[in-house]
Write a protein that binds this DNA or RNA. Sequence first.
DNA 1: TATTGTTATACTCTATAACTATA
DNA 2: TATAGTTATAGAGTATAACAATA
Lengths: 170, 170
Amino acid sequence: MEARTAPSPVADSPQPLAANLGWLLSQASYTLTTELTAALERLGISPRAYCVLATAMTGDHTQTELAHTVGLDKTTMVVTLDHLEKAGLARRTPSPADRRVRIVRTTEAGDEAVAKARGVIDDLYAEVLGVLATEQRTVLLDALLKLVTHDGPLSAVEPNPHAPRRKRGT
Amino acid sequence: MEARTAPSPVADSPQPLAANLGWLLSQASYTLTTELTAALERLGISPRAYCVLATAMTGDHTQTELAHTVGLDKTTMVVTLDHLEKAGLARRTPSPADRRVRIVRTTEAGDEAVAKARGVIDDLYAEVLGVLATEQRTVLLDALLKLVTHDGPLSAVEPNPHAPRRKRGT
DNA sequence: TATTGTTATACTCTATAACTATA
DNA sequence: TATAGTTATAGAGTATAACAATA
């Protein structure tokens, strides 16, 4: 399988120190994503498609709503939905209330795909975490959550919407 | 600042479960990389450039050696070195032994840049990990290392060199 | 005038292929 | 014939801009 994304530039430290947080996180995240992508590919679905599909299932959402929730650009959402429709996993339904808007609904096949994907994902996570002792596992997840969660040091950075396009320094 | 990389498709789960390993890792890794990139940018250096520079400092290396060590394609290495030379941080020296080969050496400015970058990186990691209790920190790093390390479940996947180019499924 | 979804397009990043100069 | 480095180029992925339909 070809790598989905190039390894993070920081992930290539030749001799990872025990304290090289960045390398550890990049490596873990990258490999897990790669394995997840490979596993889902066998179901004919991409991680992104799964994400959109699973979100669409939670209620009646327009494309823009969906894009916002999942964190995609609306034009990327168009492409993703084109794929999903072609694969028969979702369909766009005109909204009776607003004729500009299209509600995204999952098909039965889509529901099944999500269910199967959930199983695959859960299995993968269980397999990975199974290597750790029970307490270690708990602490790991707690610690990550603490870092990532609202006003932790690794909570989401909102990109400056009007930042000048970077010109690629050295 | 503009996001360097789009958020991982898996990282966008609307309501992260405590056990959503993938989301936690992606989010942590992505944000840390973003912050690291921003911090290094103030030094006029990219994470990749830092990586190459720091590796080049460890001895006399050819471009290909460097590329292999750091995990870059040789053509990408050319571009990276072009930047580094233009910025006066590294230079290509012809090898006396083999006239096809060029040894990559850091300049004094390059050495300084690496030293400064090291400081910035260490500070950032310390700041992030400072949020955790001492024991929590140890367990986190141990656990990550265990997952990522040789024959852990998230150890590096070697890409199949002759896999057919993926055609983008759903 | 503003908004939804679409299309067309430009930009970034990386890798493949072809070339040169050596070996 | 094979290898190091270079250049040119194509591919994949994303976002910006312009547009049509509707509000």
